[in-house]
């Protein structure tokens, strides 16, 4: 038979951004190993609603690891201790029977809590708006094969572009820095010829916006890349630094 487990779920509750939060314990019994972490929370919420209590609020959407909506800090790790996956792709078979599982929201000044485990990540949108694009109007493009891009470069750009904007890098960083997120976008576009034209402007604008929004300074601890569910590489940060310094020196 498949594995079922019992455990204590210690989960952060917070009414709204201004209220004081606290931990609440729930006993979970007979949870199947094939249940995803979020489905486990669904089960708990179903129970809470039946008891006429307010369910635990958490962000989630696609539940296949790509939308970047889920954002739980489980047992000391963003997206849980498993690594290389989002919370929605974390399965209960990875947890020990009888253990206590602690669930917290992302904690960072840049991501204020909205309710319970849900945080406000609109700062990421604002950083993107500052320069995370190639300035090309609809209809202004030339034939797609007119630009030849070496496979290696395209693949590297793709690896950088696989960032899902979940915020785990900020959640993992002791400095609350969003450098990996910014670096992933700057790298992707700086690698490709289409994006090179405005690479300098982009790097400066995105970094400035990141700082304005209260994210910290990168000290290269590497926690961001280690916890990134899409394994975005730390070397992107070096590329961002390079682009930024180049841009500033050129000024």
């Amino acid at each position: 038979m498949e594995k079922t487990i019992n455990f204590t779920l210690r989960v952060w509750r917070q009414k709204d951004a201004h209220s004081k939060g606290y931990f609440e314990d729930h006993q979970m019994e007979g949870i199947s190993g094939d249940t995803s972490f979020l489905e486990m929370l669904d089960i708990l919420n179903e129970r809470l609603v039946k008891e006429h209590k307010e369910p635990i609020v958490f962000d989630h959407d696609c539940r296949e690891g790509i939308c970047g909506m889920c954002s739980l800090y489980v047992n000391g790790h963003p997206h849980g201790p498993e690594g290389g996956c989002t919370t929605c792709q974390l399965f209960m078979r990875k947890f020990e029977d009888g253990s206590t599982i602690t669930v917290e929201p992302w904690r960072s000044a840049g991501f204020p809590v909205i309710k319970d485990l849900m945080v406000d990540r609109s700062a990421y949108d604002k950083i993107m708006q500052a320069g995370g694009y190639v300035s090309v109007n609809t209809g202004a493009a030339q034939d797609a094969n007119a630009i030849l891009i070496p496979k290696k470069v395209a693949d590297e750009a793709m690896d950088a572009a696989s960032c899902i904007g979940c915020g785990a890098c900020v959640a993992a960083c002791k400095n609350g820095s969003a450098m990996l997120f910014v670096a992933a976008k700057v790298s992707q576009l700086a690698l490709l010829p289409q994006g090179k034209v405005e690479a300098a402007r982009r790097a400066k604008a995105m970094v400035a916006k990141m700082e304005e929004l209260g994210f910290g300074n990168c000290t290269n601890t590497g926690a961001c890349a280690a916890e990134c569910p899409k394994c975005v590489s730390l070397s992107n940060i070096a590329r961002l630094n390079r682009e930024f310094i180049k841009a500033k020196l050129a000024d």
């Binding site: 939060g21 931990f23 800090y73 047992n75 000391g76 790790h77 201790p81 690594g83 602690t102 917290e104 904690r107 960072s108 000044a109 840049g110 991501f111 204020p112 809590v113 993992a172 002791k174 400095n175 609350g176 820095s177 209260g214 994210f215 910290g216 300074n217 926690a223 280690a226 916890e227």
Partner: peptide
């Protein structure tokens, strides 16, 4: 930048 609230459980990779 880290914010006022600290994590209860921290387990560094």
């Amino acid at each position: 930048a880290r914010g006022s609230e600290r994590y209860k459980v921290v387990d560094k990779p």
